[in-house]
Each structure stands twice: as C-alpha cells, then as structure tokens.
Amino acid sequence: MAKRIESLNITENKRLNKDFFILELSGKSKIPDMKPGQFVQVKIEGSPGTFLRRPISVHDVNYGQNTLKLLIQIAGKGTETLSRLQPGDILNIIYPLGNSFSLPPEGQNVLLAGGGCGIAPLLFLGKYLRSNGFQPDILLGFRNTERIIEFNDYKEIGKVFLTTEDGSQGEKGFVTQHPVLATSKYDRIYCCGPDPMMKAVAEYSSKNNIFCEVSLENLMGCGIGACLCCAVDTVRGNLCTCVDGPVFNTKDLKW
C-alpha cells in the first residue's frame, strides 16, 4: 500500500484515565487499507519543543465509517499536546507505515499480550485475527488499578486475562507470571509493551518453543526508511524499525 501524507479531522478525543486517551480521526478521502502492527507518523502542531513527528500504532480502523483510532499515552510534551486536541481539529499524519503482525497458520492457538500503551495495536490485531477465524486470548498487564485502560473492546475479541504489578486487580505480578500461561497451550504469542515486558515474554516463548512476534518502540527520525536512525540489532544485521519492523520475530532480535 502506498504511503501518503494527509490531514485528517479529529472526530473524537476520549480520555480513558490520567495518562491515556483515544483519538478518532476521519479521512476526507477514503483511508487506505491498513494492517495490524502498522503505525502512523503524527505531526504535532503547537508544541515548540516537539520538532519531529511521533510514531503511534493504529489502534482500530473502521473502513465503513472511514475512521481510524489511535490509543495514546501521555509520555512527554508531544503526546501531551495531542491530548488537548478537540473534535474539529486537524491532524497531519504519514501512513500506513511499517510491516505488520503475521497471520498464524490455520487452527493455531493464539495469545495477545500487552502492557501500557503497548495494548494499542492489539485491538486491531485481535479483530483481524477474529475475522480470519482465530479465537485469541488476551493478556493485559498494568502497573496498578489507576493505570488500567478500559478493555471492554478487547472482551469482544476473546477471553481477557489481567495482571497488575501490585495485585490490586487480576493476578498479581507481570504478564509472564499469569497462570493462564501454564494452563493453556499457545502456539503463538503476539506482544507489545514496555521493553522489559517484551523481553520477558520473548524469553518465555523461546524457553517454551513458542512463535513470538513483538512490536518495537524505537526512536524514529523519519518513519519511512530514509534516516536510518531507528536501527535495531538483529541476526540479519542492523535493520530499520520503521520499514523492516516495527514487528519482529523475537528469534531475530539480539536481546
């Protein structure tokens, strides 16, 4: 799919909790086909300290309504500025960028594991898997109750399992400590979250010989393969997170 640069209308800005919000964008012209795992490069206006675009995963797409959603965590000045956008405002994005999660072979048992803003691409992925006949389970990890992001949408995809680091909801601990990993046998794990979480899931997968794909969050200069600032060390040498990724098989990463 050809990449394009386009100004979209904000149709909704929904605050989920202190740190998270969802932007819904609507295209003036027909939005392009997107795949789960792909991202957009967002131009941030009105934040003088924010010079470069910011990479944000596609959270959800509704081709019928010609809209897409971004689930964003306030991490600094750029995302903070985005959190103040109102319906009617314009957002300039470059998209769709990057590769995508691969579709499993028929009949496989799949787990989606995510934490923090890493749960963003998993909704789109989950819907995509469902529409291709899979029944994924979803395992979400948060630091504490306050940080939990509303996950009703995920319940429509499959069974949702929850961990919090302080045990205030769901199982206590990290996602890799959730008992569902011991009771269910998964053929594939798709994971996105903070680096330590993805590394733990990668290690678990490799020990148990499970196919595992993660979506990396490297710093990016351009997002289109032009600057080589987003290098990731792999068994095939340095690759670009933005065009060769952001989704990588953990076997290829030198973690």
């Binding site: 470069l52 490297n218 710093l219 040498g237 340095n238």
Partner: peptide
Amino acid sequence: REGNPSPRMAETPSGMLNAVGLQ
C-alpha cells in the same frame, strides 16, 4: 558498514542529533 549502535538520534531544541555512522 553496520553503522553505530542505537540510540542513534535525539531530538534537541529546533533540531536533532544523529549518530547513524554511515550505515
């Protein structure tokens, strides 16, 4: 050339630093 290890870039006031290293 493999270039330099990451991180290879940093945003700075009205600009950016890069250390791609001719990959």
